[in-house]
Nucleic acid binder design. Structure first.
Lengths: 339, 339
DNA sequence: GCAGAAAGCTAAAGCGCTTTAGGCTGAGCC
DNA sequence: GGCTCAGCCTAAAGCGCTTTAGCTTTCTGC
């Protein structure tokens, strides 16, 4: 900047004003400064900017999942793609970290904030009894919780937005679909038990079942892995009165489940119907093609990022809902076999 | 730091010396300062550190893949997991960005370096005629190219290390396996044409085929997607004298290929053998289980990160090779049907 | 014609840290 | 005793930017 100032024949402050579109310099000077800056290939040093109170121009994302569980579904990379798209518009960086558990995640937030590394964070995989919103509030670190369930009991925290999908509505549509096909015995192979949306799906399933008078409907939680998906499938299909429909909380388990079912002699959908929560290429790679709940994860990421940007601009914290996932009916669901 | 200095009754410089393990303070003072710092929950501001010439304590990773192609395989998240593990030891951050193409990637490197945002970068997906090593050298930005092929013709660039896997050796082992099973007509469904390892696999395949006198062996490039994998599979199996073995450059295409083959009435492995390059849960989710080349991607990431750390410590640039992928023989390869 | 406002600019401080030059003290040596 | 020298410490500059206060010049309105 000193160079620019010298070459343009003005003071450093004038350069700063000119390049940041702040009043205090004439248009002529502004143009001149801009040209010189361009010519010199100048770029502001984020460090210096951050130091003089401008923020770090970076948002953080930390993912807490046990090591093995990460790579299996395409959810995160899709989400990140969406986030990036929005951040790129403002040349904001994304600081990314993978940790083992929520405790470590909290430590990372603390550190990042203390080190002035980020201006805000995106919180994923909200949990029941989640310590993170509390922590962010305490620190004063702006954040967007994505995928959570807004709690009408709790007042909106300032600086903490929520982006959520209506898992309850989606589950209702799945149950509706299966019920209409005549299924009465349904098992829901859910994801990690601590996650808020797992909880919500489980609760909704139970409520919907009761509403319809279905007594043989239940959920089993897993770690989202293909291994557990297959294991649980074998277990429930091996029982006395096996379910006629299975709802899996992700695509990977659904695919593994279909294979497991086949190995026990259960044909899909003739003997058992299968629904995958989360659509992906996988669902069209197996036979039969899987009926799946499809949502636009990339745009989910975009929405979350946009919400965070709003917060960083001192906008109000809010709660935004993304579109209800659509149930794509393919070949893996059919009328229940009449006993 | 000012607070610490005051409370410990020393100057700010003494605090700096004490906390950075630099000589110039007595052990007693050092301890006292440390205790005060701890008590105050002090953390150095990365911005200030960076500004006074210490580097940004951050490394960059940019992935250039067309939007859709990203989420399909688990490669990147695994790689990132490994990278993180090593970076975490030193509390280095990972700045992550997804872009459309290599041109955009280069722009990001330029910007990051100009803005002093990163101390070094990890370059993935090396290409034939790759502009990136040149750019890094020009900028003086330390980097590690992962997955490349070391070019003995070119001298080692200072500040640019290479971590590579022996794709040629792996391809040789695949061809050996198939040849031993009596396969004479093989099609290799490769990945993106511009990538260095694609090129290398294609060339090695041809060389190995020639060496063994196989004339009906060839490669077809794709975009790694399940869709193209299936399409190519249908095309080659529909030809006059269809191949008896297919080698896929990733797991996703292999799985899609098996499904496509089945839909044409080809049984695996009775009519056609299948090998997947890259093992994953997917390969054990389909029937038959896929014979696959397995490598430890997480440790690949670790190695790359470690190499970059070495570079940041002013260590010498080097070329390190990771272990040869192992061929895991499962159910999808068998003796070629004798015509 | 003159007070006062507005515009355009500069000087200087400050962000939180590192680092260099230098000051003071006491020990060791002739 | 006076010398040096090491050890411990401080003062101050500097990293690259923003921002506030203040200064000069020109414009405006009566």
């Amino acid at each position: 900047m000193k160079d620019i100032a010298r070459r343009a024949g003005v003071s450093e402050s004038a350069v700063s004003f000119a390049l940041n579109d702040r009043p205090g310099v004439s248009d002529i000077t502004r143009d001149r400064v801009r040209r010189v800056a361009e010519q010199l290939g100048w770029r502001p040093s984020t460090a210096a900017r951050a130091l003089s109170g401008e923020g770090a121009a970076t948002v953080g994302l930390v993912v807490a999942r046990p090591a093995g569980t990460l790579g299996v579904d395409s959810f995160f990379l899709q989400l990140i793609s969406g986030i990036q798209e929005v951040l790129a518009e403002r040349q904001l960086g994304l600081l990314f970290q993978v940790v083992e558990d929520v405790t470590a995640e909290c430590a990372v937030y603390r550190r990042w904030w203390a080190e002035h590394r980020v201006d805000g964070v995106l919180v994923v995989d909200p949990r029941t009894d989640d310590p993170r919103p509390e922590l962010l509030a305490e620190l004063g670190l702006p954040g967007v919780v994505t995928g959570g369930v807004p709690d009408p009991g709790r007042p909106q925290r300032p600086g903490l937005s929520t982006v959520w999908a209506d898992d309850a509505g989606a589950m209702a549509s799945v149950v509706g679909h299966l019920h209409a096909l005549g299924h009465r015995r349904v098992v829901h192979i859910a994801g990690l038990p601590g996650l808020a949306h797992t909880e919500r799906r489980v609760r909704t399933l139970r409520a919907e079942a009761e509403r319809r008078g279905l007594t043989e409907v239940r959920s089993v939680t897993t770690d989202y892995s293909d291994a557990e998906g297959a294991a649980v499938t074998r277990r429930v299909l091996g029982a006395e009165a096996p379910p006629t429909a299975l709802v899996y909380d992700n695509d990977v388990m659904a695919v593994a489940g279909v294979a497991a079912a086949a190995s026990l002699g259960f044909a899909v959908p003739a003997d058992v119907s299968v629904v995958a929560w989360e659509d992906s290429a996988l669902c069209r790679m197996v036979h039969p093609w899987l009926t799946a709940l499809s949502r636009d994860t990339v745009s989910f990421g975009r929405t979350a990022a946009r919400e965070l940007l709003g917060l960083l601009d001192d906008g109000p914290a809010g709660t935004v809902q993304v579109p209800l996932p659509r149930l794509i009916e393919r070949e893996s669901t059919a009328a229940a076999r009449t006993p």
